[in-house]
Design a protein around this nucleic acid. Sequence first.
DNA 1: TTGAAAGCGCTAACAC
DNA 2: GTGTTAGCGCTTTCAA
Lengths: 328, 328
Amino acid sequence: MEEVARRADVSRALVSIVFRELPGASAETRDRVRAAAAEIGYRPDHRARLLSRRETRLLGTVFHIGDEFQSDLLVELYAAAAAEGYELVLSGVTARRTEADAVHELQSLRCDALILLGPTMRASDLRTIGRLTPTVAVARAVAADVDVVRTDDVTGARIATKHLLDLGHSRIVHVDGGRSPGAAERRRGYQHAMRAAGLAGLISLQTGGLTEADGRAAALRLLAVGAPLPTAAFVFNDQSALGHVDAFRRAGVDVPADHSVIGFDNSRIARSVWTQLSTVGQDAPSLGRSAVDRAVGRLRQQSTPRRTTLVPPELVVRQSTRPLPDNR
Amino acid sequence: MEEVARRADVSRALVSIVFRELPGASAETRDRVRAAAAEIGYRPDHRARLLSRRETRLLGTVFHIGDEFQSDLLVELYAAAAAEGYELVLSGVTARRTEADAVHELQSLRCDALILLGPTMRASDLRTIGRLTPTVAVARAVAADVDVVRTDDVTGARIATKHLLDLGHSRIVHVDGGRSPGAAERRRGYQHAMRAAGLAGLISLQTGGLTEADGRAAALRLLAVGAPLPTAAFVFNDQSALGHVDAFRRAGVDVPADHSVIGFDNSRIARSVWTQLSTVGQDAPSLGRSAVDRAVGRLRQQSTPRRTTLVPPELVVRQSTRPLPDNR
DNA sequence: TTGAAAGCGCTAACAC
DNA sequence: GTGTTAGCGCTTTCAA
């Protein structure tokens, strides 16, 4: 820095001002300083900067490595953070690196706030973290006293069911997510939609889960009961929906001609030409923006009450859902 | 730190020793210090630590957010780095955040070495980076003067082709990756294997690419030519292979009964029950370990010549490849 | 715009 | 084991 100052023939303080983009230097001087820095390849030392600043302007983000949807979120978080003048610091969770490990790393960096993607830790641990640092939990309902930003699962399930209803279906089964996060909400949304359509009597729930195997098992149970089969199914998530479709097809049922299926998540596999699965997609851009907004908002105004932000999901119609044939 | 020292009734220096796990403190003292730290929730300030250390013991890692395989690598890198006493710092690339941006962040943190996953930047830029900081490029062949750790594509292609040959096939087509990274090597491996089997005359190449659409287009071209169709295909990657399979099936060809297909990458979609694609998998654990070993090795011994480490891939047999029926 | 001074919370080196 | 000193490379504050 000293060297840059010397070359640009200004003071060290001025170099600092230029690199922090603060007022107090003429455009001409800024150019001169930047040129001098470029000459010797100077780049401000981030470590020193962090240490000396009162606030780090760091948003620590914990994510689960390999999670497809969290990747989408990270993309949005990077953009939103930059727009707010904050920097994102990533800390990944793996089988051998716990969420607690990841959080500790970020805490020791003195991040101003923490954004936790799909945290699975105990509510009490979350609360402890939240007391120390402003914390936003994303994409998971948690009972701890922290800000939460997540998709409105009830609405999502209602949208999915409504889509099938609009296509003329009435014998619609819901293969649920068992005890998975969000499963209760999606059951509720399905039931609401059915009741709203005056089809309370046709509400039909099958216990499912997160995996293809879960979807397959539930489908086999349905098929074992025999006719009348439901003409449509709303399945907890895309993975399970694929198992469901596969089981129905193997049993000789034409999907979607004789049986429509809609999933949830808009995961990558649902987009493949192989599957072309209709589904409900989470709004990653909104979730990302909201998460950063909440974090930054709390930093600006400490006393805001913690609250949950619900982001509505959107219907994604592909090839696995069709109007009910006239003869059914 | 001062406060911890006071409570544990030791000097600040001792606290430092305990937290760095250096020799020079009795077990009893260590316990006392740790207890005192826990009492007040003390955790060493990472920023200060980084600033004062001569070496940061940081391995900066640039990865492309959303890339499935790079996620697998990150998991291994975290483990390998920890084992070597280094810390991993992640910096993600998105549509709006370039590799250069990601690298700059890591440089300003003064990472001891850089690990770049699948770098797509120009060789000259890579060279510039490599001159400043020890750098390892992973999973991509680059002509710059940096260390490279990548899968042995030639061997992988040979293994895939050999698998088909072992099943009795001889009319084996290779749908290649066009100008994609690795495509030339895989073509070479295929040709080697065919020649080694005395089938040079049956070598058949189709121009393909990275996507399902590419695989489909190549398949349609093959189908248009009419019989005799190849009885097996080795396709550049899993995605393209799925397009290939889909096109053949739609044309009434039974895969795998009448046409075996093997892909490359062992991507998540290949593992799905839907696809059950035989493929060639990159050895993520070895690649990750090798990358860290190279980086750390160079830090310990600056003068090591730069070199490329080739990691052999492995055959993954699933349901898309079958022995050649006797009547063919 | 400048210059000076203090400080961020550690590590490192050394004498004790 | 202790205590001291000297940084690490910035930001922050203040008076000029």
